[in-house]
Structure formats: C-alpha cells, structure tokens
C-alpha cells in the first residue's frame, strides 16, 4: 500500500503542471523606528532621477506603491495605526502616478499592453490586501498620545478610500 502510494506520488510529481504566478508583493523592508528606515526612505527619493523615461518611472512608482503598501499592512497588523496611515497614503500617492505614465508611454509609441496587464494584476493584489485588512481591523481607532489630544483614526474609511482608488484606476487600465 505504501509502495503504491509512493509510486503514485512520484508520478504526480513528474506530471507537468501549469503554474500561475500571481502578482507578487515584496517582503516588508525596514520599518519606522529601525535605524535604516530613514536611509531607506532617502534612497527611495534619491533613486527617482535614475528611473527616467516613462517605463522606468512606471516601474519606480509601482515598486514604491507596493513597498509602502506592504509597510502599511505590517504596521496595521502591529497596531501602529498612525504610522500605517502615513504609509498607506504614500502607497496611494505612488499608485495614482502610474496610469499617466502608462498613458504617456503609449503616446510615445511604446507597446504597453504587458505593463497594463501587470498593473491590473498589481491593483488586484493591492485590493486583496486592503480588503483583508478592512475585514480584520476595527473601523475606528482612537489614538491618545502622551501630553496631546486624542486623535481618531478612521481605519475603515482609509482602507475604503484606498480600495476605491485602486478600483477606479484598475477600471481605467483596459482603455490604455
């Protein structure tokens, strides 16, 4: 019986399988509070001129949007809501830069269909992260810093806005 199972197992391993690679988000890098976090942010800005050209800029902004989204996700999971909110805003801002770059690259005569497809996949990946966060996190969080007034962080609204932004941009992708 064990031998049969082993043989079936080997055959199954040898059978050709189709692998679908979804859009992969990066691992979280340095987080706020880490010694290299500020350097990492500075390098992010420093790299921008190196990414000249519409395709290169597309890669730059999408990579940063991914990076900041993963940073926001990690911070939300560790209940660092204020920092997470900032990271999410940055991710949104970078994400919003991308469609115009795709459009300008197309206007320059570059076939951008592959990148448009990739961008749509990125939007889907972002949305699934945000939807999961929205489901797992409280709608509102009151953060009371020491020696300062309490601040309400409308987590559900923030995440909802980010999801909506991506939905809107995602919908515009097929027209590119």
């Amino acid at each position: 019986m064990a031998a049969t199972a082993f043989i079936i197992g080997v055959i199954l391993l040898l059978l050709p399988v189709s692998v679908h690679a979804d859009y992969v988000l990066p691992y979280p890098g340095a987080m706020p509070g880490n010694k290299v976090y500020k350097i990492s942010r500075f390098i992010d800005r420093l790299k921008q001129p190196f990414y000249f050209g519409s395709i290169a800029s597309y890669k730059y902004h999408l990579a940063l949007s991914d990076k900041y989204l993963v940073e926001a996700k990690t911070l939300f999971e560790y209940k660092q809501y204020l920092l997470a909110q900032d990271a999410l805003h940055r991710s949104d801002a970078e994400f919003a830069e991308v469609p115009k770059l795709l459009a300008s690259a197309k206007a320059e005569g570059k076939d951008m269909r592959n990148f448009a497809r990739q961008f749509a996949e990125a939007a889907d990946a972002h949305q699934s992260v945000l939807i999961k966060l929205k489901a797992d996190l409280p709608d509102l969080f009151r953060w009371t810093p020491e020696k300062a007034e309490a601040v309400d962080i409308p987590i559900a609204d923030l995440l909802g806005q980010s999801i909506h932004l991506r939905e809107m941009i995602r919908a515009s992708v097929p027209r590119l």
């Binding site: 190196f50 050209g53 395709i55 320059e108 570059k110």
Partner: peptide
C-alpha cells in the same frame, strides 16, 4: 530614441 534608462528597461520590454 525611447528615452528610457537602459539599466532599468530591457529592449524586450518594448515589444513593438
């Protein structure tokens, strides 16, 4: 011509 950074963009990424 395409005004892209060749250290970031591969020729194959402009399929046309």
């Amino acid at each position: 011509f395409y005004r892209e950074n060749p250290y970031v963009v591969m020729p194959v990424e402009i399929p046309n």
